[in-house]
Write a protein that binds this DNA or RNA. Structure first.
Lengths: 144, 144
DNA sequence: GGATTCTTGATTAACACAGTCGGTAATAGA
DNA sequence: TCTATTACCGACTGTGTTAATCAAGAATCC
């Protein structure tokens, strides 16, 4: 039930990029310095976010990163899935990356008690993270 | 955001012990066979649950394991914490194992956006797992 | 052309996860 | 009392993940 450092750094980096959005772009080292993130590690995180289509970038002097979409079109759920994979605690209740549980006496039987409770947990997590946008995040509150 | 195999096996083992509760005790190999769990791995799980005060045990012939408390006094949250540690996605929002986040620009400032959203996630997870008892679990449904 | 910055890929050390193994201690039954 | 059975305990192992670090390449601006 743990969030990786990678995802945490990604959220903090996107926080900076959200605040800069519309005004300017930010360079790796600026983000790293403000959020105390190792710059080389941050680099691969920003690259992953770029490949996923969340960021644009520009090389050379005056280069840097910027959000492509509006901060209220990006949810924290999307971000965490990019870096940590599915939100579901167990493969057999994932909606974005379902995986049939092998070696379970209940197989893919929907009566499975584990599926029942973990499905509820998945829905609760997704209910928050998939409705919480970067705009909410930067504002520090969640307008539901 | 993932449940370990250890916790999953623990839940499945406790499912068997709940069904047997009041009638009989169960031996490692019975639980292992019914739930398809490697018996030596199951062993250390049962031992951990015993040390945590959830199970009683008896050695030798006619030995085995049994629940100490009533199934509606044990929650899935308790069980998962024993094997996987805190439910919170991040140390700085854990209620059972709080840890101040070092190297975060917001430190322990309650305005921290990460704390805000992850606190909500923690509460959602705990809201389910700390109110879901073994009795609910075995019945396959949750009476709120 | 040279400084700057992003881009890519490889590599690393430390740790956690999932499982295995060998030996010890208690209990029941013969 | 002997023996079979079962739980108990600690150490060990392989595999993969996490959290970086590093070196070299490619685009961009002055």
């Amino acid at each position: 039930m743990k969030l990786s450092k990678k995802s945490e750094y990604a959220l903090r980096a996107l926080l900076e990029l959200t605040m800069a959005h519309g005004k300017t772009t930010l360079q790796r080292h600026e983000i790293a310095a403000r959020q105390h993130i190792p710059v080389e590690f941050l680099e691969q995180i920003l690259l992953a976010l770029k490949r996923a289509g969340l960021l644009s970038s520009r090389r050379g002097m005056k280069g840097g990163y910027g959000l492509i979409k509006s901060p209220n079109e990006i949810t924290l759920g999307q971000v965490i899935r990019i870096l940590d994979g599915p939100l579901a605690p167990i493969g057999c209740v994932s909606k974005t990356a379902y995986e049939k549980c092998r070696e379970c006496p209940y197989a893919d039987n929907p009566q499975c008690p584990v599926q029942h409770v973990m499905g509820a947990v998945r829905d609760a997590i997704s209910g928050i993270l998939d409705h919480y946008t970067l705009a909410d995040f930067a504002a520090g509150s969640h307008k539901q």
